[in-house]
């Protein structure tokens, strides 16, 4: 094992007077599939948003591939990163959102090709080919010319996954990507993610309330509460034999809520 692909060191984040993360640290190994679980408001989304640079960091350092994400090294000192540095770092990371956030004025195909062509990574024909390949992988090649509004939620989310993959990120972040979907559409999205996990060596961070999926998908599960990691371990350990009382009661509540483990 080399250096971890993500190193989160003493990271703090607050919104106004609300402290959400307070000196959080953990590493993620390259290729690892990590599930972040925990009660709502425990800071899971904030962690992903910090990694995607959608929120600014208050304190601490995040390293991606050994390079600081929010900082630059200048004369041996860490100074806040400028936009150029952030742009470079973002290329390593992709994100899929709970509410899809597709570009509604673009076709499905254009949603996927827009970024690779604009960032100058690919020529238009190459981007089209790649997009069709990815849409085929998520089972939507026949929808390429449609607008997002014509798709079901599950289809939209699969397009969003294809859009993120088109930039070939090393790290993919999934924030409750199935929780806005009708129950019967959850499966098709989870299947795609399963395939991704099995077929690629991308590092994947997943925030989810789908415990059975987290169990199959993840190499490691982190249980968060109040912005801290209360317990972590292999899925079997966390789900079958949680050590902490808070983990136990959280999992019990989820089961009582009608979701299976």
């Amino acid at each position: 094992m080399g250096t971890p692909i993500i190193q989160i060191e003493n990271v703090s984040k607050s919104f106004g007077s609300l402290s959400v993360l307070n000196g959080l640290s953990f590493d993620v190994a390259s290729g690892e599939k990590l599930a972040l679980i925990g009660p709502s408001g425990s800071g899971k989304t904030t962690i992903l948003r910090l990694l995607m640079t959608l929120e600014t960091i208050n304190d601490g350092v995040i390293y991606i591939d050994g390079e600081p994400l929010w900082h630059m090294e200048k004369a041996g000192m860490l100074v806040p990163a400028d936009e150029t540095h952030l742009h470079k770092m973002r290329a390593k990371i992709g994100m899929v959102f709970q509410l899809f956030n597709l570009f509604p004025h673009k076709t499905v195909l254009e949603n996927v090709t827009l970024a690779p062509t604009l960032t100058g990574k690919l020529s238009k024909p190459d981007a089209n080919n790649l997009a069709l390949e990815l849409l085929d992988m998520v089972g939507l090649a026949d929808k390429a010319e449609q607008k997002p509004a014509q798709l079901s939620g599950g289809q939209k989310q699969r397009v969003a996954i294809a859009r993120a993959l088109a930039l070939k990120p090393k790290i993919m972040l999934f924030d409750e990507v199935t929780s806005a979907l009708d129950p019967e559409l959850v499966e098709e999205v989870l299947n795609v993610m399963h395939r991704l996990a099995a077929e690629t060596d991308m590092t994947m961070l997943l925030v989810t309330h789908e415990m059975s999926f987290a169990r199959d998908f993840a190499d490691r599960v982190l249980f968060f509460d109040g912005g801290r990691i209360v317990e972590q371990g292999k899925p079997e350990e966390i789900f079958s034999n949680p050590q902490q009382e808070r983990t136990q009661s959280f999992l019990k509540k989820i089961v009582a809520g009608g979701r299976q483990i």
């Binding site: 936009e83 973002r90 290329a91 994100m95 959102f97 956030n101 597709l102 570009f103 970024a115 859009r163």
Partner: peptide, 24 residues
Amino acid sequence: GQWEASKAVNLTVPQTWRHVILPQ
């Protein structure tokens, strides 16, 4: 969410204005 999605696919701010925000 449109701004955030644009950032997540690494568009620059001018590209986001031109290709995502203004057309909508």
